[in-house]
């Protein structure tokens, strides 16, 4: 990756006939233009139908918003019987992109797990302070993004027991406190 292929906003990247629009670019007329400053990355097309490469521009990591479908890491801020409030702290499967400011979000009771939705209890799934991996399912209302943990690899990744000790996951629904030996109920994420 050479440092010479730097695009500036408004720079012509070629006709749309030979390039596909990717992140950080936009189309005006029949040409592709850059919309952020950064390195141009050309990805060869994977589909058989089109041969044109996709041009995208690397943007600085600070400017990232949660989008529908992205995996996030967050911390539970409060719970009630219907939902758990969470603040999104980092974006990405392992938190590659740290948010400058936490984004408010919530997980509703029916989005906590995939099976036996009606038997889920929020208090048996999350506690305040848990670090949770979840996926964004909607931009939500004016305040919160809506998240879901209805997958095996989603759920609580780090939890602290009532005694204040870091716990280890035992099963899909239990965490184990190594100091007191107590077990606590959580919606546990499958380790990846």
């Amino acid at each position: 990756m050479s440092s010479t292929t730097v695009a500036l906003p408004g720079q012509d990247l070629g006709p749309t006939a030979s390039n596909n629009v990717g992140a950080g670019t936009h189309i005006q007329g029949d040409h592709l233009f850059a919309s952020v400053a950064g390195q141009i990355i050309s990805t060869p097309s994977t589909t058989k139908g089109s041969k044109t490469p996709t041009l995208s521009i690397l943007r600085p990591s600070s400017a990232t918003l949660p989008e529908v479908g992205t995996t996030i890491l967050g911390k539970i801020t409060r719970t009630n019987p219907r939902q758990a409030n969470i603040s999104i702290l980092a974006i990405g499967n392992t938190g590659e992109r740290v948010c400058g400011e936490p984004f408010p979000a919530l997980i509703q009771q029916q989005d906590i797990r995939a099976t036996e939705i009606d038997k889920v209890k929020v208090t048996e799934s999350f506690r305040v302070g848990d670090v949770v991996r979840a996926v964004v399912i909607s931009l939500g209302d004016e305040r919160s993004y809506y998240l879901s943990t209805a997958k095996n690899e989603l759920g609580v990744v780090m939890a602290v027991s009532e005694g204040g000790h870091q716990m280890y996951p035992l099963s899909w629904k239990e965490f184990h406190d190594p100091v007191t030996g107590a077990k606590e109920l959580r919606k546990v994420a499958k380790p990846v």
């Binding site: 500036l8 906003p9 919309s35 400053a37």
Partner: peptide, 11 residues
């Protein structure tokens, strides 16, 4: 603004 990485149509 360009430095912040916000999408712009031009500078």
């Amino acid at each position: 603004l360009v430095d912040a990485g916000i999408d712009c149509v031009d500078m």
